[in-house]
Design a protein around this nucleic acid. Structure first.
Lengths: 270, 270
DNA sequence: TTATAAATAGAATAAATATTCCGTTATCGG
DNA sequence: CCGATAACGGAATATTTATTCTATTTATAA
């Protein structure tokens, strides 16, 4: 057995290549199978994998050890961890940094950069081309687009309004400045573009409800399928951002919002 | 228990919505957690999931049955079976998004996601720990922080103001609502935090100039060393974002801004 | 308030899964 | 071809993980 187990997919593949030549028959079968089906390791049992590879479970175990793991479980853990980028540790990691005294500004920056990167990667998972096109179609057909997003997502709403303005698309930002209501500006044929994450801001949910009562279509940027906006029948795009401590990096939300805005602009011109 | 178990992710989500209202406390926690972390179900044990959701394993079991499954194992099997379709790694998914023509909505999204990722990676190169700490120190010593950022970077300014407010740090957003000037609120001992990218907005540059004339320190988030803000003697942090067409993804700027804000909050407390 | 039902936590049990062990079979150098 | 060594298969065992059960708590309606 080897001292060091691969800690990432890259390390794993390097080691796999290293080892793959001159392998006895059954171990070679394991190597080939794993190389061809890396996606199944995280979600299968040794019994299933070994059967699929055409070997005995014990042979598969020997392969795991050959790769530097203590056994199948350790190897599987590596695949599971890298698959579902473990964000529960995220909130606590900041705590740990703080506790450990490594709480420098640059460490914080690294956290936020990392959170942003992970969120961006997740985005490609949670938004399908079909959903995106659906949302674009609805928005492109609007007489006017009403944008609402308060508190922590207000910046997103503000940038959407800016982008629409730049492209000469009629849009109104419901910014609640001076506590003036703007809801009566929502007329038939308009569309409401609402952004809210848990805990869902009451004003936003209210406005969506108001719009639905008047048969105004709603496109929602939100964080989960059980968001109240989705339950109200909005065309929903899911974007899950990571929190770092009490704050949320909005990288993915911004990318999605901009893509949406530009796509709407393009479609209206064409 | 129910006769029919969901056979696909869509069916699952429909049933989740059906069921989600009026749920007792622990079951609601399960529903929320699952809605927010569907990707973890295939690769975790009941113990892990229930712990992460903050409930007992037995509560999680009740939730599975409520969803129409015979138990956790059957539910997990559904997730594992549909898992394979979503496996392809980040690069591949991005390719898929891109595919289908240059100006489909998903191709645009891929562009923005990629731009965001690149900007985030660059950020660690253009901002040194020393610069960051310098900026934090200046801001942490401020009596009050004035934030300005207009047009395309207004969202960043807005979020900074939000973050400072959350942390009980005296801050004022110069938002120019109603064209009211707010410059006379800038007093000795305050610090101005200015954000502007080329082409530098005149109002922002003016305000920085005003502040410098009164010996008020300025921290600048800008895009190059030859920015007018840097030339005026501001403590400068450089962040270069990529443009996609006429629009700029703000991923890196946001990450930097948040790190800055949280670091200031931490330093003031300590 | 009290009676009744529903929901919950935690421990006990059942099921599944990984891992080891060892007798047998194949491989390779001489 | 023979002896030594490595690889293998399959059953036995240890461990992990799901599931059920029951005493308590919490909510609900009379």
């Amino acid at each position: 057995m080897r001292a060091s187990a691969p800690l990432s997919l890259d390390e794993f593949q390097t080691r796999l290549l290293d080892v793959s030549q001159n392998l006895p028959r059954r171990l070679k079968q394991c190597a080939d199978f794993v190389a061809r089906n890396p996606d199944r390791i995280a979600v299968s049992t040794v019994a299933e994998l070994s059967a699929a590879a055409g070997v005995q479970p014990s042979a598969f175990m020997r392969f795991c050890k050959l790769m530097g793991f203590s056994g199948f479980s350790q190897m599987q853990r590596m695949f599971r961890d890298t698959h579902a980028q473990r964000w529960p540790d995220y909130g606590t990691r900041l705590e740990n940094l703080r506790a450990g005294g490594a709480d420098t500004p640059s460490a914080l920056l690294a956290e936020f950069v990392d959170a942003g990167r992970v969120s961006l990667e997740k985005l490609t998972n949670t938004v399908t081309p079909a959903q995106l096109e659906g949302a674009v179609t609805v928005l492109a057909g609007a007489r006017m687009i009403h944008v609402i997003g308060l508190r922590r997502v207000f910046p997103v709403a503000a940038y959407l309004a800016y982008a629409f303005e730049k492209m000469n698309i009629p849009a109104l930002l419901h910014d609640h400045v001076g506590n003036l209501g703007q809801r009566h500006a929502i007329l038939e044929g308009d569309v409401l573009l609402a952004i809210t994450f848990a805990p869902y801001s009451e004003e936003t949910v209210d406005l969506v409800s108001y719009a639905r009562d008047r048969n105004v279509e709603v496109v929602a940027l939100t964080d989960a399928m059980n968001s109240p906006l989705h339950q109200m029948g909005a065309t929903t795009l899911i974007v899950s951002e990571l929190d770092v401590g009490a704050f949320r990096a909005l990288s993915a939300t911004f990318s999605l919002a901009l893509a949406l805005a530009v796509a709407v602009g393009t479609q209206r011109e064409g």
